[in-house]
């Protein structure tokens, strides 16, 4: 049990008649970055609020940092940090006052708090603005300050609820770098929900997708993508599809081939290795290829398969809701 940072068994939460989370099993080892995806209303936020002790489960059990979620929430709070979906800041404090107070609430002395603020400077990266009121900060500055506050006490487990939503690409990269750093150098376990599949793909050791309150699939990004099958080469061959099909079927590596209008869908085990031979075979057969491209399974394909919706559509809908 102690090897797990987070372990949940049939964890569930209902609100009146609505079952937001229907019974989730999780086993997240120490030091892992776990990416948690799901459409709007799937139960992501409810699950994270249970795990960070803001909400009691109605059924099931869980241990976070080795402590029981129901009976030992105080022990858990000492060992976790959380940056919630909305940056939870006090606009009438300066960034420095806010971080110092955060340190004091976690038992840090003034010297320790200031030391941690110095150390987190590269993440916050707002220079002298740290002495300005938070109400004057941009969205990106607020996000980074929020993340720094979650880290002020060196937590063992960090919960990040959509940590880069609303950030520009540069700020997003900086947060990613910091998330990797605290995971790799300090061994902090990170549980993150995200709107960006690229983020989960790039950061997470393991990904879980929740749908209708249940964990639908779980695995490493590579495993999940592999579960969607092989690569597909798509070639626009004009009207000469019969001849093109014959040409590519002659290749050993080619599996299934289908034509859709002027396009051929060619299933191969390794698209990067075989797109050249496919193009050559078509050329040698005299087929004029107008366009050729390769599609490797992505987490979006996994998401689509599990939830029935493209991830971008869900994220866009969530953006609209948030506005």
């Amino acid at each position: 049990m102690n090897d797990w940072a987070i372990e949940a068994k049939r964890l569930a939460r209902s609100f009146s008649d609505v079952e937001a989370v229907k019974g989730i099993d999780l086993s997240i080892p120490k030091g892992q970055i776990y990416g948690f995806l799901g459409p709007n209303g799937a139960g992501k936020t409810t699950l994270i609020r249970m795990l960070i002790t803001l909400l009691l489960p109605t059924k099931g059990e869980a241990r976070v940092a080795g402590f029981d979620l129901r009976s030992e929430p105080k022990q858990i709070r000492l060992r976790i940090g959380a940056a919630l979906q909305e940056a939870t800041l006090d606009p009438k404090q300066t960034g420095l006052e806010f971080l110092r107070l955060q340190g004091y609430l976690y038992g840090l002395s003034r010297r320790q708090a200031d030391q941690r603020i110095d150390e987190l400077g590269s993440l916050v990266d707002i220079g002298d603005a740290i002495k300005r009121f938070i109400s004057t900060y941009s969205g990106g500055m607020k996000r980074r300050l929020d993340l720094a506050a979650a880290l002020i006490h060196n937590p063992e487990i960090l919960f990040l609820d959509e940590p880069t939503t609303g950030l520009d690409p540069i700020s997003r990269n900086r947060v990613w770098e910091e998330v990797r750093r605290i995971n790799q150098e300090l061994g902090v376990t990170i549980f993150l929900t995200t709107q960006y599949l690229e983020e989960a793909d790039s950061l997470a050791d393991k990904v879980g997708i929740i749908n209708h309150g249940l964990l639908a699939v779980e695995g490493t990004p590579a495993e999940l993508k592999r579960s969607m099958g092989s690569d597909i080469i798509i070639a626009d061959v004009g009207t000469d599809t019969e001849s093109a099909i014959d040409a590519v079927k002659a290749l050993d590596a080619v599996g299934q081939v289908e034509s859709h209008g002027t396009e051929l869908m060619i299933r191969v085990s390794n698209g990067a290795a075989h797109i050249g031979p496919v193009a050559l075979a078509l050329h040698q057969r005299g087929v004029e290829v107008k366009e050729i491209k390769m599609h490797t399974p992505t987490l979006d394909d996994v998401f689509l398969n599990v939830t029935g919706a493209r991830f971008e559509e869900v994220a866009a809908a969530e953006d609209v809701e948030n506005k």
Binding site: R77, L78, Y106, G107, L108, R116, N154, L186
Partner: peptide, 9 residues
């Protein structure tokens, strides 16, 4: 960093 840990104040 690792030496600084949370505690009840």
């Amino acid at each position: 960093q690792q030496e600084i840990r949370a505690k009840h104040s």
